[in-house]
Design a protein around this nucleic acid. Structure first.
Lengths: 190, 190
DNA sequence: ATGTAACGCTACGCTACGTAGCGTACTATA
DNA sequence: TATAGTACGCTACGTAGCGTAGCGTTACAT
C-alpha cells in the first residue's frame, strides 16, 4: 500500500500498474493479487484509508460545518492519495462496469454520509428551508468538487469551497436578504 | 459513426471497441484509424455532433433560460450518444493523460460557453448579484449533472435540473425573500 | 492508360490486467 | 525434532483491446 500510495501521488492513476506496485514494493504481483482481487479493490482501500480523517465538525451552524468539512475534503483531494484514487475509481467504473456497483456501495455511501448528517441537523435546527432536498445539495457541492477534480480546469482550494457553499446556501440571485431573526439562535427551533 | 452511435447507445462506453465498430459497420479497422487517430477522437466527434443542438434559448430571464437549456441537456445526456460519449471521454482522460488536453479544449469550451452567455447577460440585466462568480455557478450546475451521469445514483430529469437551478439561484437557507421589484421587468436595468 | 486516393486484409507489437502451477521459507504444534 | 499449513516468490500464460505496418485492390480522374 505504501508503494501504491507513492506511485499515485507521483504519477496519478495512469501510472499505477500492478506490475509497478509489485516492482517498487519488492513484492510479487501474485502476492498482491492474493490480497486484493482487482486493481480497483486496492484503490478502494487506499481511498477509504485516507478518507478516515473526515468527520462531522459540529461547529454550531451549517455554514461553518460545511466549510470546515470542505477544508478537510480539499486537503484530502489535493494532498493525499484520495484524489487520484477517486479519479481512477470513477474512470475504472465507466470502463469496467463490473467495478461500478462495489465502488458506489463503498464510496458514495460513506462520502455522502457526513454531509447528509450536517444538512439534516441544519434542517432540524431551522437553519435551512424544511423542504430542502438534501441529496440535491450534496450533488451540487460534491459535483462541483468532483468536476474540478476530473477536469482540472480550476483549482480546488478553500476560497473555491467557501464561495461554493455560500452559493448553495444563499443563491446568486439579486435579492433583499432579511435574515431570519433566530438565525444565530437557531437552536430555539430544534 | 452510425455504428459507433448504436453501440454506445446500446452498451455504453465499455462496449465500444474499435474492433466492434469495424465489424458492425462493415468497415475495416484500419480505415477507421485513417479518419480518427484515436478512439477518443471518434468519441469527441460523436459528442460534438450531438451537442450541436444546444443553443442559447434567450427567454427573457435567467431562470427560464437555464431551465430551458437544462431541458436540452437532459435530453442530450439521457437520450443521445452524448451521455455515454462524455462519460467515456472523461474516463479516458484519466487513464490516458495524453487525451486530456484536447478533450478539455474541445469540450469544456463549448459546453461552458452557452451557460456563460446566459449568466453574463443576467448579470448585465441586474438579475444576479454583480459579483457572481460565473465559473463557480457553472461548476455547481454542470458538476451536479456530471456527478449523476458518472455515478448513476439518481436520475437526471427535468425535476432534478429545475430544482438544481432554483437551488443555485435562491439557495436553501431559510430567509425572508423580498424579490427585487423589477424581477419580472428586469429588462429595465439592461 | 495511368497515376492517385481511399479502402480492405492479415498480421503484429504493446501494455496491462489477472491467473495457473509449482517450488520455498517460515511457523506452529505434536 | 518432524510435519503440516500458510504465506510468499517466480515464471509463464491467457486475454482484451489499442494502434500500426505492409501490401494488395478498387475506383476515379486526367
Amino acid at each position: 500500500m505504501a508503494a501504491a500510495r507513492r506511485i499515485l501521488l507521483e504519477g496519478g492513476y495512469a501510472r499505477l500498474t500492478m506490475e509497478r506496485v509489485a516492482q517498487e514494493s519488492g513484492i510479487a504481483k501474485t502476492t498482491i493479487y492474493r490480497r486484493w482481487p482487482t486493481k480497483a479493490a486496492l484503490c478502494t482501500d487506499l481511498y477509504l484509508d485516507a478518507a478516515l480523517e473526515l468527520h462531522d465538525p459540529e461547529t454550531g451552524n451549517v455554514a461553518s460545518d460545511l466549510k470546515s468539512l470542505a477544508e478537510a475534503v480539499v486537503r484530502l483531494q489535493t494532498r493525499t492519495v484520495a484524489g487520484p484514487a477517486l479519479v481512477g475509481l470513477i474512470a475504472e467504473a465507466q470502463l469496467n462496469p463490473k467495478t461500478k456497483r462495489p465502488f458506489l456501495a463503498e464510496f458514495a455511501g460513506r462520502r455522502r454520509g457526513v454531509t447528509r448528517l450536517i444538512l439534516h441537523r441544519a434542517i432540524e435546527r431551522g437553519e435551512l428551508q424544511p423542504d430542502t432536498d438534501i441529496d440535491l445539495v450534496i450533488d451540487a457541492l460534491g459535483g462541483a468538487v468532483t468536476f474540478r477534480l476530473l477536469q482540472g480546469h480550476a483549482p480546488i482550494n478553500k476560497r473555491f469551497t467557501d464561495e461554493l457553499i455560500d452559493l448553495v446556501l444563499c443563491g446568486c440571485k439579486k435579492q433583499k436578504l432579511v435574515q431570519n431573526q433566530d438565525e444565530s439562535e437557531s437552536r430555539r427551533i430544534r
